Amino acid sequence: MDLQVISRDGEPEYAVLPWAHYQALLQAAGVARPQETASTFQSAESTASASVDFPSFDQLGSLRQAKGLELAQLARSVGISPSYLELIENGTRQPDAAIRRSLAWELGVPGWRGEP
């Protein structure tokens, strides 16, 4: 089985496996779940990322500081280097959707968890 384990702080946190293997595991466990296609999943993912109302990135440093987080601490939590986070904060780089979602999650930005 093709499996990728993602660790944080030396402890396994996520397991990533191919969709077909996931479906087979659900079936073996007796979990009734309709087969979703990759396009259905991607559509749901783009809807979810579009619903994140993230403040403009020129406010990111202020928001991080207001939460009492050091740049390196937030970068590690998000899974990027501190230098890359610094580039995002100063407007040199624009993060992709996954990094935006992670930043929103770590900073508790409303909208990510369905908060009003």
Score class of each variant (00 low, 15 high):
residue 1 M to V: 15
residue 7 S to C: 10
residue 8 R to C: 11
residue 10 G to V: 12
residue 12 P to F: 00
residue 12 P to Y: 04
residue 12 P to V: 09
residue 15 A to G: 15
residue 20 A to E: 12
residue 21 H to P: 02
residue 21 H to T: 14
residue 22 Y to K: 06
residue 22 Y to Q: 05
residue 23 Q to N: 09
residue 24 A to H: 07
residue 26 L to Q: 10
residue 29 A to D: 03
residue 31 V to Y: 06
residue 32 A to R: 12
residue 33 R to K: 09
residue 33 R to Q: 14
residue 34 P to T: 13
residue 35 Q to I: 07
residue 37 T to F: 00
residue 38 A to H: 01
residue 38 A to K: 01
residue 38 A to M: 06
residue 39 S to V: 11
residue 40 T to F: 00
residue 43 S to W: 01
residue 44 A to I: 12
residue 49 S to H: 09
residue 50 A to G: 07
residue 50 A to Y: 02
residue 54 F to W: 04
residue 56 S to G: 01
residue 56 S to K: 06
residue 57 F to N: 05
residue 59 Q to I: 04
residue 62 S to L: 02
residue 63 L to F: 08
residue 63 L to E: 07
residue 64 R to S: 00
residue 65 Q to S: 11
residue 68 G to Q: 03
residue 69 L to V: 14
residue 69 L to Y: 11
residue 69 L to N: 05
residue 71 L to K: 15
residue 71 L to S: 00
residue 75 A to V: 04
residue 76 R to T: 10
residue 77 S to C: 12
residue 82 P to G: 06
residue 83 S to V: 04
residue 83 S to I: 03
residue 83 S to Y: 01
residue 84 Y to H: 10
residue 85 L to D: 01
residue 89 E to Q: 13
residue 90 N to P: 11
residue 92 T to Y: 11
residue 92 T to L: 02
residue 93 R to H: 14
residue 93 R to T: 13
residue 94 Q to T: 15
residue 97 A to Q: 11
residue 100 R to G: 12
residue 100 R to F: 06
residue 102 S to Y: 07
residue 103 L to Q: 12
residue 103 L to F: 05
residue 104 A to P: 08
residue 105 W to C: 14
residue 106 E to T: 06
residue 106 E to R: 09
residue 106 E to K: 03
residue 108 G to F: 00
residue 109 V to Y: 10
residue 109 V to D: 07
residue 112 W to S: 07
residue 114 G to R: 11
residue 114 G to T: 01
residue 116 P to F: 04
